[in-house]
Amino acid sequence: MTMRNAAGVIFFAIVAVFFIFSILSLHPFGDFGEEGDKYYLEPKMDDYIIDNAQNETGANNAVTSVVFDYRGFDTLGEATVLFTAVAGVILIFRRLGK
């Protein structure tokens, strides 16, 4: 019991220290930085989508054009996961509810 708890505490502490040090290396919230900064980011793909989504897909909502057009395969996999989960729930509860 105590062995297991000690192992849990050590694992928890390692993960906590890892997270706290890793957030310090991220860019500050909402600030993508200037050129030359350590955390400088240039989201070229997102800027392309924001600029061209209206011409290419005709949708005013860029998020919808990403979900169903640029990244349709993600949505296909998500639909498969939802279908599988519903099938699993029905499979489990059908025998219980008889």
Binding site: M45, V66, V67, D74, V89
Partner: peptide
């Protein structure tokens, strides 16, 4: 703001509901 993380989060939320039910 960037649209791609929002779209991925949208997918992730629905998957989360399905996995929670299972």
């Amino acid at each position: 703001s960037l649209p791609v993380p929002q779209a991925l989060t949208l997918t992730s939320i629905v998957i989360g509901v399905a996995v929670l039910a299972l």
